[in-house]
């Protein structure tokens, strides 16, 4: 019975993440459009796009990995989702958050990149391969401040689990945003790279690589990738809310917190061009890493 509960809860969580992620994506398009003096698409446009991709009637494949790439991507986002507490008390989302900790989550979250990279490699498109090298390089870039922020939190609060970090905030009454501000800054700066919006949209840079790893994927593959990206956006936002903003007691709180967090990369991205790969990687090893080191020092000092 427990297993059924998990499966059922997992599906509900997935649907929630899918809907929220897609709506956020649509909102992003709307906001960008407004900044660009346009009316913009409706905020449910992403659903239409996704369903259109889903209902494409033909597809091509280049081999087994072509199928498995999007599947790996989905594994990364959905499994990460299932190990993150959505609400503080679980409620309708009885997921597996007591069964994994942050380090597990770190690996689970980077797994998608590698899996997608394999799928992109099978297509044999040179643009895909170049996009993959860029994506992996960028990943190594932003993982450094990100792990620093997480390690700082772990040291400061003596726990490596997300639920532990949420409990700490509940007990002390302050958000970790204030308890370890530098870690928050480092993590947010790293998140700019994770979201891959400008100036870090170097992987699928259209003017350079014609959408990079996704070049050969249309229809059902792109649908899977799009859903996975939406879910993953939700995962990242919820994780940030859990780690730094004390989690959420109910859905409204969750939506407000995640939306505010989502606006940081979105609004930063609208007004910036794209970095070159090595510039992006170096950017992450500049100030974000400095903040990460300060965060660790602060954590050591404060415990």
């Amino acid at each position: 019975m427990e297993i059924l509960q998990y499966i059922f809860g997992g599906i509900i969580t997935f649907l929630l993440a899918f809907v929220v992620g897609m709506t956020f994506g649509g909102t992003r398009r709307k906001i960008i459009a407004r900044i660009q003096n346009r009316y913009g698409p409706p905020i449910y446009q992403n659903f239409i796009d996704a369903f259109k991709l889903f209902s494409k009637t033909s597809a091509v494949h280049h081999g087994a990995m072509h199928y498995m790439g999007p599947a790996f991507l989905m594994v990364s986002s959905v499994v990460s989702l299932m190990f993150i507490p959505i609400l503080r008390d679980g409620g309708w989302f009885p997921n597996l958050n007591f069964h994994g900790d942050l380090i597990f989550l770190l690996y689970m979250m980077v797994f998608g990149s590698l899996g997608m990279a394999l799928g992109a490699g099978q297509t044999g498109n040179p643009n895909s391969a170049i996009g993959v090298t860029r994506g992996l390089a960028q990943m190594v870039g932003y993982e450094i401040p990100w792990i620093m922020a997480l390690v700082a939190m772990m040291i400061q609060f003596h726990t490596t689990s997300i639920t532990g970090l949420m409990d700490v905030q509940l007990q002390s009454g302050t958000w970790n945003l204030f308890a370890s501000p530098f870690a928050f800054v480092a993590a947010i700066l790293a998140s700019l790279g994770m979201f891959r919006y400008a100036p870090f949209n170097i992987v699928g840079a259209p003017a350079e690589l014609a959408s990079g790893p996704a070049s050969e994927n249309g229809g059902k593959y792109l649908f899977t990738m799009m859903s996975s990206h939406s879910v993953f956006a939700f995962v990242k936002l919820t994780l940030f809310a859990d780690l730094f903003l004390g989690g959420a007691g109910n859905l409204v709180e969750l939506l407000i917190k995640t939306f505010l967090l989502y606006m940081i990369p979105v609004l930063y991205g609208v007004v910036n061009p794209r970095y070159r790969t090595e510039q992006a990687v170096r950017w992450f090893w500049g100030w974000p890493t400095v903040f990460g080191i300060i965060a660790i020092a602060y954590a050591v000092w404060s415990t």
Binding site: S58, A59, H61, V75, A210, E216, K220
Partner: peptide
């Protein structure tokens, strides 16, 4: 999750999904 997604990408439009060689890329 892996098997579900794989099954989806594999069986969705199975009949209209054709193998193309890696030369037929954009």
């Amino acid at each position: 999750v892996f098997l579900t997604t794989l099954a989806f990408t594999y069986f969705r439009n199975r009949k209209r999904t054709r193998y193309v060689s890696t030369k037929d890329i954009s």
